[in-house]
Amino acid sequence: MSCQCECQDEVARKEALEKVFEQYRGTKGALIPLLQEAQEIYGYLPGEVMQRIAAELKVPFSKVFGVATFYAQFHLKPRGRNIIRVCQGTACHVRGAARVFESVSEKLGVGRNETTADLRYTLETVACLGACGLAPVMMVNDDTHGRLTPERAAEVLEQYE
């Protein structure tokens, strides 16, 4: 079931992208707007999509990739619905942030700056969240979770769909 649904999604996305192509056909300097629109549709910039943009605009694929990696706005990997940021500050470090990270990483099966296959989570680290009193800390989206143990960190994630 879910496969069929995803395929339909993919068809819809392709149609949406095609519409965007039409809209920008003949517009000068369309590469960046197209990348922005494509990211709006796909949530990130998959390689095939960048390749199609290159073909549509008749510009080298290497150039599209160069532009996409220059601007901070563009993501080349899918980002999860929930962004986890495990604090790596000194206080957290001393109180076992590394073990918290490991536990989360193990539970999700992803490393730093990676996203789970179901796009539920993206795991990131952050230099310091400024919540040293609650160390070790991690943020999920806009919520700060403190005084974590490796076990509790893994549990906390459950509430984020």
């Binding site: 707007p33 922005q36 220059f70 601007y71 901070a72």
Partner: peptide, 13 residues
């Protein structure tokens, strides 16, 4: 006098 204005959104640089 003819004049048109277009908006270009930056991409974070």
């Amino acid at each position: 006098f003819n004049f048109r204005i277009k908006i270009k959104a930056g991409a974070g640089a």
